[in-house]
Design a protein around this nucleic acid. Structure first.
Lengths: 346, 346
DNA sequence: TGTTAGCACTCAGACATCACGAGTGCTAAC
DNA sequence: GTTAGCACTCGTGATGTCTGAGTGCTAACA
């Protein structure tokens, strides 16, 4: 694969991203970086087509990059671009006041900022709840055999749930419960609370079992809620502006966004680009691509941030942005050390 | 307006709802309930057109009902139909087990059921939080100057919020706070907690003001959250199946669903039908109609339930369904008396 | 051997034309 | 007041034609 062919491929991709029209040999031969005639370009393009990097929608049309073409373009041709200082400033300004950041807020601001800059939809998946540890459990009586269970996790999430009991708890019950929960649940990882663990806990309560098990069950339900990590999509409306995305598929995507979570979580670290049709998940929008990057906390993946748009996306611009945001998130989470305990559950 | 013209109008509406095609005089004259020739039908249709009840998309096409046409059809021609026993049974089955109902669950089940039956989107707006009263406020220390405020309302909603303080609170602070909150907040309506009320409360704390005001502020923020009532939309995807609804408008609608709340809350009691273009709210989908009905609790409107679909909707079928569900909700809320205290804030 | 000009060929898209048929309004007769 | 008949309208879909962008191939050139 010689350098000129790569230049031609790059030119096709650039041009197609810009115009959305198949690119012909003449257009390319007129570009300053290509100094050969249209005929030569044609010869090269025929070879690029044989290699599966370009394709023709129909005989008398120009060339369009294939998925492999895009991939090669992104991986080989686009170098890792560093952001200009002004760009950084602009992005930082969009993120808002650093003082006020929590992981959640930073993530949210980053995704709105990305959506605004790229005019695409952004997706965010936060694994933090999954890896968090129960830091406090509290049971509060609220009259008439109703008890509110409050669960606070190490990453600052707070969850609550009302439990209706068969009868009111005595002072003794409450004291036992307080001690029991402290000893058996505080410090336990949210993901540890499986059904078996629940059974163990209930058995461990001994004679208090009958009276108190609904509360423990409630706690397990909450931690199960915490385990399934949610995908947040921002800027869906932006997708409407692209002619090459099917509107019904967009709606379908929006209502099934949670199915994205496996896609996001399975992806490798670093910036990764996936194309709608290539993935076999049925819910992905045709002709769309998704750029995802993961951020870390103390060496472990803590979540991911991505942009969803048409396949013809300005990768050269967007990838560095995503990179910047995920680096920022990773840095923030490591600076933050043991973790602030803020946040609320709305 | 003679009876035959009404019958013809009804026939046009029925037929148009069924087929989506403009209805011609011949089609109508062949219907069993119309015993006149096509020519006569044409004469009558011309008059109905003059009255603004029908219109022609173009000269050589059949007639289509106008909004007024639909309205007349719904109000004058469709009587209030009672549901068949089987229909009731079917609806009840879809609502699920009565034993488990809370207002929220019932509302949610009703809207999913409606969405499924009607193949439309349903909207739900619950005013309950707005009218609820604070039944309990609790402050729980969670280490390192972080305090979780827990707010429980009369309708069973639980909200929580973490507040970071300047310094840790003493035993004395906590005792004062407990008494203060009990005396000043329990029993207060959520909607009462305005900014002025907040100022009053803070002043009333006297020397404790400096230390404790962040907590009170947190409480007010939460009650403000409770006040703005959310609109829940179910079955948006169903809207995609209708050719006469614009897909981009559907997406726009989904992402601005909260703007519906004023529309829902302002509507009168009883079943009401509104048409997309007639309302001046910009966000409504063109060519769509919305059927809303409100349910009550102790004489006051407690929320609304509606169906959104294309203008050509099977009103004859849907209206009784909505009616049934809102009656059921109203009945449930009045049976329930002072209100169960269940629910959780996820 | 790689590059280029020239040329015949292909094909989507725009545009015009045409026939069809569903539906109308009007008129005159019943 | 109702109906049959008829001329007229007009959207729809099928068909044909033209155009231009773009191609592949070939032969000449460096």
């Amino acid at each position: 694969m010689d350098a000129r062919k790569l230049r031609i491929l790059a030119a096709v991709v650039d041009n197609y991203i810009k115009t959305g029209e198949p690119v012909g040999s003449k257009t390319i031969s007129m570009m300053p970086e290509i100094k050969v005639s249209a005929a030569t370009v044609r010869n090269d393009m025929a070879i690029l087509e044989e290699l599966g990097l370009l394709e023709q929608p129909h005989t008398s049309a120009g060339r369009v990059p294939t998925f492999s073409g895009y991939r090669l373009y992104i991986e080989e041709i686009l170098g890792k671009r560093e952001l200009e200082p002004e760009e950084r400033k602009r992005l930082d300004a969009m993120l808002g006041d650093e003082e006020l950041f929590t992981e959640e807020l930073l993530l949210q601001n980053a995704s709105t900022a990305l959506a605004e800059i790229t005019k695409c939809a952004t997706v965010v998946s936060n694994l933090a709840p999954k890896y968090s540890v129960i830091s406090k459990v509290e049971v509060i009586p609220t009259g008439k055999r109703i008890y509110v269970v409050l669960l606070i996790t190490s990453n600052g999430k707070i969850k609550n749930k009302a439990c209706r009991m068969e009868f009111d708890l005595t002072q003794e019950h409450m004291e036992f419960l307080k001690r029991f929960l402290e000893e058996n649940l505080e410090g336990v990882s949210v993901s540890e609370l499986s059904d078996e663990k629940l059974d163990q806990l209930i058995t461990a309560m001994g004679t208090y079992m009958v009276a108190l098990s609904p509360l423990v069950k409630g706690i397990c339900e909450m931690s199960r809620d915490l385990q399934k990590n949610e995908v947040i999509v921002t800027g869906e409306q932006n997708l409407l502006t692209y002619r090459d995305l099917d509107k019904s598929e967009i709606v379908r995507f929006i209502s099934h966004k949670n199915e994205l979570s496996s896609l996001l979580d399975d992806s490798m670290s670093g910036v990764q680009v996936m194309f709608g049709e290539e993935e076999d998940q049925g819910f992905v929008i045709g002709n769309s691509s998704i750029i995802v990057s993961k951020y870390q906390k103390s060496g472990k993946t803590a979540g991911s941030l991505g942009v969803i748009g048409p396949v013809r996306l300005d990768y050269a611009k967007i990838i560095p942005y995503i990179d910047y945001f995920t680096e920022k998130l990773t840095r923030f989470l490591s600076d933050q050390g043991e973790g602030k305990e803020e946040g609320n559950d709305e």
